[in-house]
């Protein structure tokens, strides 16, 4: 069953068109990778799907329901959670308040405060601290935990390895199987092609606002990928 089906999506920033006729679909339980260079439109795509960008045309179906015209707060209620690029934790709140804030929709399920701490033991016992004292990797864990607190059906993870040491990125990627095991599908946006391919079932490559390549992650050849990535 398709959890997310995006068809013919065009997105605009004023007179500028950022995305052209994008078609992306995510099966329930799948992890889908979205790769592409800077400015390819990956973040714009995630923001449009999550409802943060209103000026768009095309069809976005989530869980059998048209959500293209809904605002972000209503889409969140339906079970879509976005881990924003640059983490964007609430700086005036403690770690624990950040996590609790993630559960504001009141959606119940597997993910609770103790379960998030279990997934990321590094941030357990640090609930009373403020975000700025944490390392980048720990902040990313809080950002992912905050999204999980909404018990989402679909998790959108934007550039979660940005600016982090490879060891830390490994640690974060290791949490994905546990997240999927609880029935959450994932879209990861990455600049690092190999890591994205290894962590996902299906890959889309974006270039200048268009899908230039798609296919099962295992089946994509390196040549085809680099061709689609750089447009050479």
């Amino acid at each position: 069953m398709k959890l997310l089906e995006v068809a013919g999506l065009n997105v605009f920033y004023g007179d500028l068109q950022a995305l052209f006729e994008i078609g992306v679909s995510v099966e329930a339980g799948q992890t889908v990778a979205l790769i592409g260079a800077n400015g390819a439109g990956k973040t714009t795509f995630l923001k449009s799907v999550a409802g943060l960008i209103a000026s768009k045309r095309g069809s976005i179906t989530f869980d059998g329901q048209q959500v293209g015209g809904l605002p972000a707060e209503q889409i969140a209620q339906l079970g879509m959670a976005l881990v924003p690029e640059g983490r964007l934790l609430f700086q005036n709140m403690t770690i624990e308040e950040n996590l609790i804030m993630g559960g504001y929709t009141g959606r119940t399920g597997y993910w609770t405060l103790p379960k998030v701490y279990e997934l990321f033991p590094t941030i357990a016992n640090r609930g009373r601290e403020m975000p700025f004292v944490l390392s980048g990797g720990e902040q990313q864990m809080v950002a992912i935990g905050r999204a999980l607190m909404a018990n989402p059906r679909l998790l959108l993870a934007d550039e979660i390895s940005q600016g982090l040491a490879p060891v830390v990125v490994d640690q974060i990627y290791k949490s994905f199987p546990a997240i999927r095991a609880e029935g959450t599908s994932i879209i990861i946006v990455e600049q690092e092609v190999k890591r994205a391919a290894a962590a996902s079932d299906y890959t889309y490559c974006l270039l200048k606002g268009r899908v230039t390549l798609e296919g099962r992650s295992k089946a994509l050849s390196f040549d085809a990928l680099s061709h689609a990535y750089f447009g050479t």
Partner: peptide, 24 residues
């Protein structure tokens, strides 16, 4: 309170608060 947290979240970053289901 939960609503107080929503107020602080909105003050900090409106869009991120919306992603948590807060209607600004």
């Amino acid at each position: 309170t939960a609503f107080g947290r929503a107020i602080r979240a909105t003050a900090d970053n409106r869009d991120v608060a919306r992603l948590m289901g807060v209607k600004p």
